[in-house]
Amino acid sequence: MTQDYQDGNALAGPLAELFTVDVTAATGRCVSCGHTGRVADLRVYAQAPGWVARCPGCEHVMLRLVRSPDAAWLDLQGTLSLRVPLPPA
């Protein structure tokens, strides 16, 4: 892998189109290696159509997002879980 990546902070806008919470501050767990870390710290490759976010531990694809004119495709099969910080219920 090259260093041609940004990080998960760049997903804040695209994900805010779908979710009202800030997903970049969430903690994700990688299906492949079990690494846990903030979505903001994923390695994001925006050269692909849409965004491809890989685990900083093992480079496994944890999240894919493609925005078409009338829909968004969100693929989270590489993410085992997301812990999303919320204000007290």
Partner: peptide
């Protein structure tokens, strides 16, 4: 433009 976004940094 759209924003502000980003709650981590």
């Amino acid at each position: 433009l759209r924003g502000p976004v980003g709650g981590w940094f």
